[in-house]
């Protein structure tokens, strides 16, 4: 078996930190696009957050959106180009804080787009502030005593929330914190694209991912944090498949 760079990824260095999960998720998305043979009819949206330079890495058409707005932008694109494959790649701040409205309503319309949601429980690019998915007690630069001491509420569980809606066709939460998890994540990402190709409507894969830099952990400790802490708060599994 040979190991290649996916065609959909450019041959460039990324800006991601050591131990960051974005590189793995990028690869899974690129592999899925390659395997489905859809690169030349796929259009992605770049978010605001650590993946803001997404377009430097993906060799398909990309639009750089405002913070939280990719599901609305993707809606405009998909409605005008229904035979193209439109996906968003968003972090937790983008998708579950400033863009919650756009997320819920694109899902509720059953918009035939695919959302790759990278949940690392922190604002990475801006330096480690509380995210909507920061777990109770977790330290961040804006929850110095741990989340929950000063009325910050608890983490938002997007898959559970969206499964209350009729619109989504596919909702699954996976992780990239072990080889087994990565294989499962790959299947989920590919399936999400397949749902769109089949015209089934809104598909979303939530990926629990590591941020050692802003968690102030080593890459190995960050993997443990996902496996031991995050999975307890964000249970993995399929929330919708039809």
């Amino acid at each position: 078996m040979e190991f290649h760079r996916p065609r959909t990824l450019k041959n460039v260095l990324t800006h991601y930190c050591p131990g960051c999960g974005h590189g793995i998720v990028h690869r899974l998305v690129a592999e899925a696009i390659d395997e489905l043979g859809i690169r030349e009819r796929t259009i992605g949206t770049a978010p605001v957050g650590c993946a803001v330079l997404f377009y430097n890495y993906f060799d398909c058409d990309i639009i750089e959106c405002a913070h939280g707005r990719p599901p609305a932008v993707a809606t405009g694109m998909k409605r005008m180009l229904p035979d193209r494959i439109i996906f968003t790649y968003q972090g937790d701040g983008d998708l579950a804080a400033i863009g919650t409205t756009e997320t819920i309503h694109a899902a509720n319309r059953g918009e035939n787009i695919t959302v790759i949601f990278v949940n690392n429980a922190i604002y990475g690019m801006t330096g480690g502030q509380m995210a909507p998915t920061t777990i109770k007690g977790q330290w961040s630069t804006t929850t110095p005593e741990g989340r929950g001491k000063h009325g910050e509420g608890g983490p938002i569980r997007i898959c559970e929330m969206l499964s209350a809606l009729d619109g989504p066709s596919y909702l699954e939460r996976v992780a990239v914190s072990s080889p087994k998890d990565i294989l499962r994540a790959k299947k989920a990402v590919k399936k999400a694209f397949e749902k769109q190709i089949a015209g089934k409507g809104f598909s979303l894969v939530e990926v629990l991912s590591m941020c050692p830099t802003d968690w102030k952990l080593t890459p190995a400790q960050a993997v443990d944090f996902v496996n031991e802490k995050m999975k307890a708060v964000f249970p993995l599994g399929v929330f919708r498949d039809r």
Partner: peptide, 21 residues
Amino acid sequence: IQAESEIAAINMIFGASAAGA
């Protein structure tokens, strides 16, 4: 599309225009 907000509406326009409409 009746958008969920003015913000979503203008961003749908952003996408539709980028798609050539």
